[in-house]
């Protein structure tokens, strides 16, 4: 039996790769420099795709890149092996840290972890879940 393991390396992601955002509509606030995509938003970076209801982009002070992506509506992080979803998420590109809040559900093979709040570092592939965390996993050895 394949050794099942609970890790989120599957969600690991090189955060220096370019980020591509597609959506039904876009509105830009000239004053704050904030762009708001809405309508089945898709944010792609390398092999990771984040889908959400709306996504607000905060640009770097020098306007040369994205500082943060704030996502709402049912947010789904998906990588080839793992998936994570929550009510809302904030992805800070520079630190590679994603904070997901509200009915967070992490699934990976037969293992699921659910909780209220997940702080996850995409580069390190580590994270911690809080709130009454429930993990359902299949122990490795077959029980005699």
């Amino acid at each position: 039996l394949a050794q099942t393991s609970i890790n989120l390396t599957g969600l690991r992601q090189d955060t220096s790769l370019p980020v591509e955002v597609t959506a039904d509509s876009l509105s830009v606030d000239q004053g704050t420099g904030q762009a708001t995509f809405s309508g089945n938003v898709q944010v792609k970076q390398g092999e990771m795709t984040i889908s959400a209801g709306t996504a607000r982009i905060e640009y770097l002070a020098d306007g040369q890149g994205i500082a943060k992506v704030l996502l709402d509506g049912r947010v789904m992080f998906a990588s080839p092996t793992d998936a994570a979803e929550a009510d809302a998420a904030v992805y800070t590109i520079a630190t590679g840290e994603v904070v997901m809040t509200g009915d967070v559900l992490l699934t990976q093979g037969q293992t699921t972890i659910s909780g209220n709040r997940l702080v996850y570092n995409l580069d390190a592939g580590t994270g911690s879940m809080e709130g009454r965390v429930q993990t359902v996993f299949v122990p490795g050895k077959a029980n005699p």
Partner: peptide, 11 residues
């Protein structure tokens, strides 16, 4: 499956 419940889970 086994179920593990805790206040906090760190991966």
């Amino acid at each position: 499956a086994a179920t593990l419940i805790a206040d906090r889970l760190e991966i």
